[in-house]
Amino acid sequence: MKNLLTFKNVNYFYQTKNDEIFALNNVNFDVEENSFVSLVGPSGYGKTTILSLTAGLLTPSSGKITLDGEDKIDIKKIGYMFQKDFLFEWRTVWKNITLGLEIQKPKDKEEKLAMAEELLKKYDLYGFKDQKPRSLSGGMRQRVALIRTLTMEPKLLLLDEPFSALDYQTRLSVCDDVYEIIKSEQKTAILVTHDISEAISMSDKIIILTSRPATVRETLSLNLEGTSPLKKRETPTFASLFDHIWRQLSNEETAKNKT
């Protein structure tokens, strides 16, 4: 399958007044089209830096990032979903969803509006179209945020711990919803998460990062049976995978504490 995103020998330094933080060290990986890739690793700058670089919000200090065959990142090909839903309280659900279209004014706006309406209907939010976000539950708000991102028809979705602000029950069901939406809309996605089981249950590939300066420690290709993240959690290999990643990460934490 074709690679949608490639990181080749990417280095990144954060510059502050008194310091220069070496965040990424020679990072190499690629993301195939229509795949779901997770980035896991110790807390630090690494994971979110990778997302910001992918979105073109940061430029690598050295190395090359290729998105959809081009060296220059076209932000219109990217959809970004954040830890918080960042819905604008003064806009209705519909106005929130169409915010991106309002900003970019694409030529096929009408088609995209029709698609947004379809998505709302499909994911049981159409009834809330004209309501303000404060009347929605946490899970619904994240679904609205996802539809807002999908309406722009991005080629690549960047998910920056989008479930971490939800309670556990909601988290599991929203995870299922988001996974289903992404798969049925045939999108490519990169998920950053602290939650190992979330990564295993959603991904086709997991990239384990080391502590700062982050580099790729291991890349795991998964092929779990099951149609949804919840079902995948029940597969026999789930526990061993969890154990493996857990060990890798604890080694990292020990190494980090030693330095």
Binding site: L57, I75, I78, Y80, Q83, K84, F86, I103, Q104, M152
Partner: peptide
């Protein structure tokens, strides 16, 4: 105004 919301707008190319 939350930095994240500005980032969201930037990610939409605003």
């Amino acid at each position: 105004v939350e930095e994240g919301k500005i980032l969201l707008m930037k990610s939409m190319h605003a």
